[in-house]
Structures are given as structure tokens and as C-alpha cells.
Computed example of a mutant assay.
Amino acid sequence: MHTQLAATLLLGVLLIDPAAAQQPMPTPAALSERIKDVGSINAAGLSALKPGTILFTDHRDTPANPESGLIPYLDWGKARPAERAALAPYPAYAEPDYTITVNGVSKPRHETLKVYVAQGRFVLPKAPEAVDLSSYATLAFVSKMDPVIRHKALSPADVTPTKDPAAAFAKRPDRPWCAPGTVCIESRYDLEGKLPLGVKLANRLEDGASKKVAEFVSFQSELRILPPAEAAGLTALTGIDAPVAGGLEQTIFWVNQILRFGKFLAVVQPVPGEPGKSVVTTYMALAIKADVLERKQEYARVPVLKNLLPAQVLMGNSSFNTGTSISAGLPVYARNRLAAFAEALAKN
């Protein structure tokens, strides 16, 4: 029962909200007026993209379909290989294989994932060297985002994949998480709106269960400025024929419920032929455990929970989705956070 309630908790885990650190966030109506939905960001020309306008896509061909916009992890690598290479926890990341024990019997398990990816693009009327991404790569800055998400510094020694290397966490093969030069963060988000009631109902229905649903989501992440050599390779991802001036990345490598990983990535390049302007391409990716999305029958017998199916809540198609932030569902939240990030860079 816990799977679908957790789906909504994680909507706000990843995307950095710079505007909240500097000024009140614009109203959702003002934000939506700035966003132009397109089928493909990379196919849209830069010449017609004016400062103040944001191109946006999350590949949702049929928004009313609960799982439209989600792609199986393996299919993601085949359909958009540059995107998967940049937005997975690390380039060689694979769906986890691990061992579970049921009634004293151990057996192997392969976990399949589905990925939500939102992409945005906007132009700034200033040169790339005037865009200071390092001012966003601090714990103090991240702590000023959405006030309902609390953050604190995390010791690299306390990183979950490091402490429990046998578990199905995203332990890096090339280096440890939170290596020198990165910011290591532990975060907590307490459920809002109608969701705490849903958690209480779920826990009551599973009164004998050994593991109760948490009324919060906790997660660990690494925030860093990409090294120049690593950032340089992102031109294949953005599709813009111009050198990369900088990249900002926040990777969620451990979450207590529903997700396996998440990433926010921002890439700054000069506008080709216009060195006094910058084009910023942003990405938000969340990998959801596929078995969570497939759990439906157990809710059908409970009228109040019929609209709490994981895919519906996650994609903002449930009566439990309210407001304009995390509780509204991932697509609305991603759009608003992208617009807030664009505004922060424009005013910084």
C-alpha cells in the first residue's frame, strides 16, 4: 500500500529552486505564461527563442494517460542514449540486481525502472562568463529553496551506498559519492495536503504489516559544478554547436521510498553566432520503481484510495493532486521549478 503514497512525496526531491533563495516565487499563472510546450527541445531553433520565454517538454504525448511521459530505463538508453548517459547516476549505471529473503528463502531479484524526464531551454541576455553557476552549488543556497524541504550537510562517511555496499543502491564504480569538491546533502520532505491522510489510511489497512509507510521522504544527494572536461562532452546532449561554458548537477543517489535515483542538470553555452547571449538547457530526471506503478488491485476495494494510484498521482492526474507545487504532480512542479530557475539566472 505504501508504494502509491510515496509516489507523490518524491516529486520535489530533485529540482533546485533558485528563485526561492533570492525573491518570492512568481505566481503559477505568471510562470505558465513564460513556458512554451514543444515536441522536441533540440529540434526548436534558437533564433526565435527570446529572453523570458522557456521551451519545455516532458515527452507526454497523451497527458491524460497516467503513464504518458514515463519510459522504461532500457528503452531510454536506446531512444535517447546521450540523455541517459548524462542523467543516470553515472554513465555505466544499470538497473539493480540484488537478493531478497522471503520466509527464510533467499532469491535473486532484478528491479526494472521507468524514467520521467523534463527538459527546458531558455536564453539569457548576457555572456556565459557572466553566468555564475558556482553561486548555486552551495548548501546555503539549496536550503533556501522550497521551505518544506529541509536540508543539512551530510558526512561522506554516512552516505548510504558507502555504509551498505551490498544493498541495491547506486554505488559508483569510479569514485565514492560526495568526493572532495562536491556538496553532500541529506534532505527531508514531510508530506503535505491530502497525502498524510492517505498514508494514515494505508497504514491502518495494513495494520499487521512489519513496515509502515513513512509520512516523509528522506533522500541524499551530491551537488557539484561539472569539471570542464566532463562538461565539454554535453554538446551531444544539448544538440547545440557551441562549447559548454559550465554545468551544474545535483544527483539523488539514495531515497527511502519509490525512487532509485534523480538528477537535475543545467548546461550553459553561448548562443551560436551571438557571444553576448547564453543558452541554458536544463534537465530533470526521476527513476521510479516499475513495480510501484503496477500496483493497482489492492486499492480498488477502498473507495477513498481509488484515485491514489501511483501513476495517476505521480503524473498529476489524481484528485489527490492539489495546488501548484509538489502536491500538484510532477509535470506541474517541474514546469514551475524550471521557470523559477530561469528567473533566478536572469536576475542574478
Rank of each mutant, 00 (worst) to 15 (best):
M1D: 09
V13H: 08
A20H: 13
A20C: 15
Q22P: 10
Q23S: 14
E33N: 15
E33G: 15
K36H: 13
K36C: 10
G39H: 08
G45L: 03
L49Y: 07
L49W: 11
R60F: 04
T62Y: 08
P63A: 09
E67M: 11
L70N: 03
L87T: 01
P91D: 10
D97W: 06
T99D: 15
T112W: 04
L113S: 03
G120D: 07
A130N: 15
L133V: 05
A137Q: 00
A137C: 12
A157I: 04
V159G: 05
T160E: 13
K163S: 06
P165S: 06
P173C: 07
P176H: 11
T182A: 13
K194Y: 06
V199W: 00
L201N: 02
D207W: 15
E215I: 07
E215C: 05
L226I: 10
E230K: 00
A231R: 00
A231E: 01
T235I: 08
L237Y: 04
G239Y: 03
G246Y: 02
E249Y: 00
R260W: 12
R260H: 13
Q269W: 05
P275C: 06
K277M: 12
V280L: 08
M284E: 11
A285R: 00
A287Q: 01
A290W: 03
L293K: 02
E294H: 07
Q297R: 12
Y299A: 00
Y299F: 12
N307I: 01
M315G: 05
S318C: 07
S325K: 09
P331S: 09
V332T: 15
L338N: 02
F341L: 13
